[in-house]
């Protein structure tokens, strides 16, 4: 398993645990009264699960197991894979911090647009690296 896949999969596991703990917290009796941001954190929870866990796991396993790009560069341009990993996680973490604050009426400036741009660029980098590896034998 290449190093980048290990990073993707370990981060995916952390997000899975975080998302499911957050799901417990959201439903804990009286929690939303004591911690108001738990009442507005549903979209954040959903994206921790589908971006942090599911998408990140797919990115990591696809980088590992898809057909080789070439003998010299079996997994394509690895820097694109690392770019995707960094941008996806920075974007998601910024979202986790900024989204509940915005939902509670605090103006977060450009944090959410920056998070959006980072995650979109992560997707572009991933597709750019994987696309040439998706081919018939």
């Amino acid at each position: 398993m290449p190093p980048l896949t290990r990073w993707f999969v370990k981060f995916a596991l952390v997000y899975l645990v975080a998302a499911l703990l957050l799901a417990v917290a959201m439903q804990w009796p009286g929690a939303t009264i004591r911690v108001p941001w738990l009442a507005v954190v549903w979209p954040t929870y959903l994206h921790l699960l589908v971006v942090g866990w599911l998408t990140q796991l797919i990115f990591g396993v696809a980088f590992w197991l898809f057909p080789r790009h070439s003998a010299a560069r079996p997994r394509g341009y690895e820097w694109l894979g690392w770019t995707s990993f960094v941008l996806l996680n920075v974007g998601l973490l910024v979202r986790v911090l900024a989204e509940p604050r915005a939902a509670l009426g605090h103006h977060g400036g450009l944090l959410l647009p920056c998070s959006a741009a980072a995650q979109l660029l992560a997707g572009v980098a991933f597709v750019a690296n994987l696309w040439p590896r998706v081919r018939e034998r």
């Binding site: 979202r95 900024a98 989204e99 915005a102 977060g108 400036g109 450009l110 944090l111 959410l112 647009p113 998070s115 959006a116 741009a117 995650q119 979109l120 997707g123 572009v124 991933f126 597709v127 994987l130 696309w131 998706v134």
Partner: peptide, 21 residues
């Protein structure tokens, strides 16, 4: 599927950005 990923991420980025700007 990769094309849908790009389209879906673009729509998601616009939705998220809209909330801050």
């Amino acid at each position: 599927a990769l094309l849908h990923l790009l389209l879906g991420f673009t729509a998601g980025a616009l939705l998220l950005a809209q909330r801050g700007m």
